[in-house]
Design a protein around this nucleic acid. Structure first.
Lengths: 243, 243
DNA sequence: TAAAATAGATTTGTACACAAAATTATTGTA
DNA sequence: TACAATAATTTTGTGTACAAATCTATTTTA
């Protein structure tokens, strides 16, 4: 085993030398690893390591990295390479402001469409979220919860805004990884269930209001005050030192 | 002169062999050529031609094309290459819907900020737009008008939304090129002036309303009904044949 | 003649080699 | 030891060669 540093990437799906992956698949896999908090912000994604893991040349890895950079999930620094993004508190606030705007709009469109396909997609998703919750696997729960917003967006009939949101959700995930104050509370199943209900019943105004407060709730559970965050981290480090 | 097909690209800025351009500059140049309607939608951007024009290897041209594709200004088709996008009427409607949402939000933030820098940027821009208008150069007028929205967005303190809008403005430009019914009327100086006035005076609600109706106005001057558009084109072709 | 098959030219996809830059290790100096 | 200079190593940047796919022209066949 040549590379141990990026073991998480290998675990998530290295490739059979006989059957190399498509660029899209490599993109998806790296995207997922980052969004699932399996790599710390700031981690250097060295091209050669990725080549080794996915059994492709540097040309293709570079194309994938360019795409991840356009999503603002990684940052490309000239002559130094690709690094997992480390969004500032300021950026974090803007991401959530943008999400309130876009998801507020999308949830209204969804609610007003009264589409049967949408209703089934939401019910299906809520069921899965419930199952994940019952099973108790924390990782799966977080993943499913993050998916709820994308499922809703994809059903709202606005592919452009849904794509913008895709980026914002990914960035939110990085933001939560960095600024989370109280782990675990970032996505309430109950709020998602209520949201799905309002949408399927066509109660647009209420759905928009709930979506906005849901997002504000997630944001408010973050530690976006730089001074306070520094204090908290110091406190945490010292108490670890004591115990 | 090896290539005559993409003469517009060469005109817009071929490069001195001694001093090759940066990737960003090549990106900007191609972006501008497309957005300024100097290439018809569907035009095949052959890599070798671009290499020849900008005096760089295929590697760098490919990186630039990937970026343009992520803006949805060109489309990358596997094994066939890069083509100037040809947005459908459906996409066109969604672009304008997204713009109303995002620019409505941005104009409100701008109006509520009461920022001195913003006021000066807008006044400066309106002055330039007026000058371009007085000079009578149609091409320059269209360019300046398109810029107004970006200037306003860049001053609103929401770089993420401003970047989303950058893509939408570029796509709008392609859309206007394809679906324009009455040339020249797509951007009214007077509306921009009024918009700038409302923003600098902090009259947010009125500014939002005007921005939305301004965008709806641009959209309504397009020919987005496929049947009607086909009829119009037939009519036009036949009358050209007569004259 | 029109359609199908084939051959040739063009164009994109990818790996790889080498250059340029940045990082790390080593040596020299006060 | 601490610091600066330099050498060695690593890593990214870019052009290019060749393979694969597509497109175009020519020939064949019904």
């Amino acid at each position: 085993m040549k590379h141990r540093k990026l073991e998480e990437i290998r675990k998530n799906g290295a490739s059979d030398p006989k059957n190399p992956l498509e660029n899209d698949e490599i993109y998806e896999k790296i995207f997922e690893v980052i969004v699932d908090h399996k790599l710390l912000p700031g981690t250097h994604l060295k091209e050669e390591v990725l080549c080794d893991v996915y059994n492709v040349g540097r040309t293709r890895i570079r194309a994938v990295l360019a795409r991840l950079a356009s999503d603002h999930v990684i940052e490309l620094v000239a002559n130094r390479g690709a690094f997992v993004c480390n969004p500032s508190a300021e950026e974090a606030r803007e991401v959530f402001r943008a999400r309130r705007l876009i998801e507020g709009h999308l949830v209204r469109r969804a609610a007003e469409s009264r589409d049967e396909k949408l209703r089934r997609a939401l019910e299906q998703h809520i069921r899965e979220e419930q199952e994940a919750h019952d099973s108790g696997a924390q990782g799966v729960v977080i993943k499913r919860c993050g998916n709820f917003h994308q499922v809703l967006a994809d059903q709202a009939g606005s592919p452009i805004l849904a794509r913008f949101l895709h980026e914002l959700i990914a960035r939110s995930s990085l933001i939560v990884a960095i600024y989370e104050e109280r782990p675990g509370g970032e996505c309430e199943l109950e709020e998602h269930r209520k949201l799905a209900e309002l949408v399927t019943q066509g109660r647009a105004d209420e759905a928009v209001k709930l979506m906005e407060s849901h997002l504000t709730g997630i944001e408010s559970r973050l530690d976006l005050d730089p001074v306070k965050k520094a204090d908290d981290e110091l406190r945490k480090a010292l108490s670890l030192n004591l115990g």
